[in-house]
Structures are given as C-alpha cells and as structure tokens.
Design a binder for these strands. Structure first.
Length: 355
DNA sequence: AACTCGTGGAG
DNA sequence: TCTCCAAGAGT
C-alpha cells in the first residue's frame, strides 16, 4: 500500500517531464537559491527571478561579496525581502565557515538564517539525496486528503513529516519530494482537484468519500485593516529625495518616497510635511497632487496619496530611516523599491520626462 | 502559539 | 472587482 503510493507517484513524475531551470541541476547553490525563492512563492513567479539571479551572481561567493542594495535589487518585486537579506547572510556564512560550498549536513544547513524545516529537507534531499520529507503547502494538502487529517493546517506539519518519512524511497528522495509538490501544484490543487487523473486516487480517503473540498481544514482568517498613507516626491534642482527603510521589518532595506500614516483627522498634505520633518529633519511644501495608489499587503492594505513637494530647508538626517539620497529620476531604477512605489513612478515622472 | 513578513495568479 | 493563497521562516 505504502510502496504502491510512492511507486505510482514516481511513475507519474517520470511521465510528466516537468522542466524547471533548477531541476536536475548538479549545482547545490542553484537548489539552495531556488528553495529560498520558492518559499510562499509560486513556481512560475520564481523562474525569471532565478534566471536573472544566477546571471548576476554565478557563485555563492558573488552573493556574499555583493552589497545589500545589489541583492535587494535582484530580489525587487519578489516580496518577503527578509529572504534576500537572510540569503545574503547565509552565503557569507557559507564562505566563512564551509569554504564556499553548501554543507552536505542537515544540522549545518538548518543553522543558516532563512532555512527552516522545509528548505533544509528540500535541499538535502534534492542536492544530496538524503531521505528527508519536505513538507510544504502542497504536501500538506495531499496528505491531509489521503488520510482525512482534520486538524488545522498550522498543527499538521510534524505529523505529515513523520508519516512520509516511512514512505519516502531511499534511492529517489529528491524526486519523491519534487513529485509530491508537482502533484499538489498540477493535480491535487486547492480548488477543483483533478482526482480523475490523479495517480494516488486509488488510496485517497477524501476522494473515496468525495470530501476533497473539506481538506485541508483552513485556519481562521483575520480581518485586514486599511491604512491611509501619504508620500512626497520632493524636488530640489531636478533631484528627488528618497530614504531607505530600516533593515528589519516590513520592506526592510528598500528605498521609498518619504511619508507615512495619516494621524486621525490629518490631511495627506499635512501628513507629508510632518513625516518628512520627523524622518529626515527636512522642511518641505506640497505643490501638486500626483495620484492615489491602492496596494494590498499580507495583513493590511493601504490607500496612498502622493504629492509633488518642493524642498524648503534643512539638511537631511536619518531619524527614522537607515539612509537618504538626492537622486536624479532617471537613476531611480538602480535602487530597490517596493511595489507600491513602482506603481507611482510613471505618474510621478511622466510629466518631467517631457521637459 | 499567534503575528509578521509581498506579490501575483486564479477563480 | 474581491478573496484566497502559494515549493515558509523568524520572532
């Protein structure tokens, strides 16, 4: 029964021939990179980022020696930027303590920042053929359906891992893990799973009872608040003033237009003047409304009003940011910015480019 | 254990 | 348009 499951799975995997840029790579660095990029991120989103990254940083040493701005620029748009910062640190640790090679050792891999149970098992099984089950959202969904596991998702990872460690084939552990994830992505999908062509339907309890829609059991969803934000595009002699966010926390290390949350009853224009004074110690004056940008994050969404501003007085200093810079608009693409700011670029600079 | 971390695709 | 959620990890 158990052997049947892994046999059917691998048979399906071999016949699918799903081609990914990192699949079958002998380069452990490529596997390591791809597994970090794939955290909470779909395969099709990762592929172009992965290709560009290995062009920009062919080796682990190239990552370790690059400045954080270059790292974040390559990661720009992929989200969850702590992954990029942690990957940067991990590559530096690998160069210092493991002579520049991905360690073939589960404890060493797990000790690296940004490498948790999933990524450690994925790298060890795919790059080094250790028989460790990698439990991601796909695997969790498949196994919860196979066995009708009714506990909420957040408590299920350990149980699924121990179930799979008895099944995972010693000779093809990496293929088994990748096959499970491909199956979850292509066949055993969250909605409308293709059970009729699933190689595991013969031993799936959810399929037998027509209960696939009820598994896995979802966790309660918190409400997302909406914040009103205002930012200023501050001009001085054809340059604009940008600030860099603190390295930790939301969008850590990325550049942005100065601004912040509106206080209760405050206008967007007053908010910009106040925030720029608080963040950078600079006095500005709003001159023209640019556009309202809406953007949604994981736990909240924002409505952002953007204004052109003119510089009045004060030398910038870092009060609530990690860096600042006067920069020409055409050079702004050199630095990493969050998506909400990118939505503003074309509207903020379209008029200026005509001049 | 519950929160915090982005963004884009799918429905 | 709106909601859900994805090759999770850190705190």
């Amino acid at each position: 029964m158990k052997r049947q499951l892994s046999s059917n799975l691998l048979k399906w995997y071999d016949s699918e021939k799903i081609s990914l840029p990192w699949r079958n790579s002998a380069n452990a660095y490529h596997i390591f990179l791809s597994e970090v990029m794939l955290q909470q991120t779909q395969v099709n989103t990762v592929i172009p980022y992965f290709q560009r990254w290995i062009q920009a940083f062919p080796t682990i040493k190239d990552v370790a020696q690059a400045p954080l701005d270059h790292i974040l620029k390559q990661w720009e748009g992929l989200g969850y930027y702590s992954r990029a910062r942690n990957f940067h640190k991990s590559c530096q640790i690998i160069c210092e303590k493991f002579s520049g090679e991905i360690p073939n050792n589960i404890e060493a891999i797990s000790s690296l920042p940004g490498i948790g149970p999933y990524s450690a098992a994925a790298v060890m099984s795919i790059a080094f053929h250790h028989p460790l089950p990698a439990v991601d959202a796909n695997v969790l969904r498949i196994v919860s359906r196979l066995h009708l596991l009714s506990a909420p998702v957040s408590t299920l990872t350990g149980k699924v891992a121990s179930l799979l460690s008895e099944i995972i084939p010693k000779n093809r552990a990496g293929d088994f893990n990748q096959a499970m994830m491909d199956l979850g992505r292509v066949i055993c999908t969250n909605r409308n799973p293709k059970c009729d062509i699933c190689p595991l339907n013969i031993c799936c309890k959810a399929y037998a009872k027509n209960l696939t829609h009820a598994f896995p059991k979802k966790n309660a969803k918190p409400l997302k608040p909406v914040y009103k934000i205002a930012v200023g595009v501050i001009w001085r002699d054809g340059d604009i003033l940008i600030s860099r966010r603190k390295e930790e926390g939301l969008l850590g290390g990325l550049w942005e237009f100065p601004g912040g949350k509106l206080l209760p009853g405050e206008t967007a224009e007053n908010c910009i003047v106040r925030e720029v004074q608080e963040e950078l110690g600079v006095v500005v004056q709003t001159t023209e409304f640019i556009k309202q940008i809406k953007h949604s994050y994981t736990h909240f969404s924002i409505i952002m009003d953007a204004y052109h501003c003119k510089y009045i007085s004060g030398e910038p200093r870092c009060y609530q940011c990690s860096d600042w810079r006067w920069i020409e608009p055409e050079d702004i693409s050199m630095l990493p910015f969050p998506k909400a700011n990118h939505k503003l670029f074309q509207h903020a600079f379209a008029k200026e480019e005509l001049c």
